[in-house]
Simulated assay, not measured.
Amino acid sequence: MASIATVISSDRVEGTSVYNAAGDKLGTIDDLMIDKLSGQVRYAVLEFGGFLGMGTDRYPIPWNMLKYDTAQDGYVVPLDKATIEGAPKYADASVPDYDDRYTTSINKYYGF
């Protein structure tokens, strides 16, 4: 009996589509933010907006909100586009320090 892999390389996660529960594509995963002490993924950074990769914003979403859906070959989040658009974000050229203040703002926004 074949076993199912329970880990995945980050380069295979980056670029994966993210959908809402209705099946609408919200964007793609641009990056993963990993806790330096625990080694656990804390946030998936969702990229969407702009045109041809220009002017896109990055939205960190708590990793535990994403659920992989094999039927869609992507991740599903219980969020709609308007909710994500109001979330903490940054431009590609201005990645913030993921310090306590910034991570608290992300977690508070998503109710953690």
Results as ranks from 00 to 15, higher is better:
94 S>L: 14
7 V>S: 15
87 A>Y: 03
22 A>Y: 12
108 K>L: 09
40 Q>E: 12
58 R>S: 00
92 D>I: 06
12 R>S: 08
23 G>S: 10
94 S>K: 13
83 T>R: 14
48 F>L: 07
110 Y>G: 00
112 F>S: 02
3 S>R: 07
80 D>T: 15
82 A>P: 03
66 L>G: 02
24 D>E: 15
108 K>P: 01
9 S>V: 12
80 D>N: 15
4 I>K: 13
6 T>F: 05
83 T>L: 13
31 D>N: 14
70 T>Q: 11
53 G>E: 07
86 G>N: 15
11 D>W: 11
70 T>L: 07
37 L>G: 12
92 D>L: 13
39 G>C: 07
92 D>S: 15
19 Y>I: 12
99 D>C: 10
51 F>H: 00
54 M>P: 00
102 Y>E: 04
66 L>Y: 09
87 A>R: 12
13 V>F: 05
14 E>A: 04
76 V>M: 02
18 V>P: 02
15 G>C: 02
34 I>Y: 10
33 M>N: 13
74 G>V: 00
55 G>W: 02
106 I>Y: 04
1 M>K: 00
102 Y>T: 06
93 A>N: 06
98 Y>V: 08
38 S>I: 06
108 K>N: 12
61 I>A: 13
30 D>W: 08
74 G>P: 05
66 L>P: 01
60 P>C: 05
89 K>P: 00
39 G>E: 04
35 D>R: 11
83 T>I: 13
99 D>F: 09
